[in-house]
Structure formats: structure tokens, C-alpha cells
Amino acid sequence: MTSVPSKRYSDDVSLVVVLLDTNPFFWTASSSLSFSQFLSHVLAFVNSILLLNQLNQVVVIATGYNTCDYIYDSSMDASQSSEKGRMPSVYSNLLQKLEEFMIKDEKLGKEQSQRAIASSLLSGSLSMALCYIQRVFRSGPLHPQPRILCLQGSSDGPEQYVAVMNAIFSAQRSMVPIDSCYVGANNSAFLQQASYITGGVYVKPQHLDGLFQYLTTVFATDLHSRSFIRLPRPAGVDFRASCFCHKTTIDMGYICSVCLSIFCKHHKKCSTCGSVFGQAQSDTSSASDHKRKAPET
């Protein structure tokens, strides 16, 4: 079955899926950058990507603290050009959907308030973005090199560790780079790992009032042109894991030899797989003459 040779597009076409953090607990606490300032930077950035190439496509997914949803897709937006003196439709459509989304997010938050709310649902929006990108791959060669851009401010939710890692590995297998711009206080270990593993760029801007410039200089260029640009280099990646028992981040811990679950202290029984642990390892490995030293307990 041979398909009609599709129209060839130049390499510099971009499809960017932007994940926008809308966590109200982060944004109202943040002093350096208000949400409206943040939005105006991001909207200008989205618009500039769309203007760079008429085939460029931008999809925006809002990451809330209870749910996530699509709030903008430029391919569904017929009238991109702005009428005289009026706001481009990019903005009005996006902002309206965003408001609807935040109301929905809050409602869900009331229904099930037992969730830890300090973090946004990054795993959900990453998974959603990857589903969308798979659909783009299925639909043909229009966008051969899509990418994901996470604009995140709230801190990592360690309870999402496994889900976020699953999404990262899936992105790596389908060769989708995850770029991230982190506007929060400390570095985000999730996003650092995501960008490192998938070959994306991680940036933590120093001057948040210049956010738009960081976004355009680093993230507006398509993947093809990226090879000619000197991009910020990773300044050390945090490879720490979070333990399964308390969900805290640790740099040393115990690992169940049956299922590889991570624990921060010695347990009698693995809570994931139920294996009962034998005596301390240093007793069992008595072969002292062997080259391999036994890692002590």
C-alpha cells in the first residue's frame, strides 16, 4: 500500500506542545512574577512561534493541581490573524479556555481534597502531550519533529515519580525532546531528568522579568536549527530518587532485590511486593577473597 507522496515540508517546521502550570498555590505565593505577567510572556512567545512559520503549530495544555486539559490548539483555530487593533484570537480563545479550566480544576479540588496540592499534575499533562504527539505521528509526516515545553513553577510532587519517569521513557523512545523552563525557587529534579534523558534543554531563568527573551532565544528555534545554536548546557542533573515509603527525595537508600522498590530505611518486609527480607547482607556474602566487595547494610 503506497500512499501518495506527501507534500514535503522544510525541516524548520515546529510542533510545540506547551504545558502551562496553573497551580494557584504556587502563583499566589510567588512574589517575583505574577501569573498575569507570566501569561503575557507566554502568550507573546506562543504568538511568535506561530508567526515564525505558517506551518508551525502550538498546542497548549494547562497543568492544574487536580486535572489537566487542552486549552489551545492552533490547528483548530481558523482565524489566526489579528483584526485591526484587536486582540489576536490566540489570546482570546486561550484565555477563555484557561478560565474555564481553572474553575473546573478548583471544583475537582473540592470534591477530592485529600491530594497534596503543592505540586501540579505534571505526569498527567506530560502523558496527555505524548498521546497528542502519537496522534500527530499517526496522521502523517506533517510534523516529523514535535517537542514538548514544560513551563513549570510549582515544586515536584514525589508521589508522581513513577508516572513522570514512565512518561519520560516513552518520550525518549519516540524521540520527543522535553524542554523545560522552571520559574520556581529551587531546581526541579523531574524536569532536569526529563530534559537530560530526552535530549531537551532545561533552563531556570535568573531574571524572571525577562522571561520572554529566555523563551524566544532558547525554545523558539526548531530542532533542526538547534544544532547551530549554542544552547545553555546542563549544570549538573539531580539524579536523586524518592523513596516509596515516605515519598521523600533521598540520595542513599535501600533497594528491594526482588522488585527494585526504593526505601529510605531498613524494613522487614517490602511494601510493594511483600517479600520478607533475609538477614543483613554482609553476613550472607562470606566470600571475602572475591574481588567484589559486598555493599554493607
Binding site: A241, M252, G253, Y254, I255, C270, Q281
Partner: peptide, 9 residues
């Protein structure tokens, strides 16, 4: 035999 192994990240 199931065991806990100490590891560093």
C-alpha cells in the same frame, strides 16, 4: 533470597 541492598544515587 529477597534482600535489601544499600545503594547510592
Amino acid at each position: 533470597i529477597a534482600n535489601l541492598i544499600k545503594m547510592g544515587f
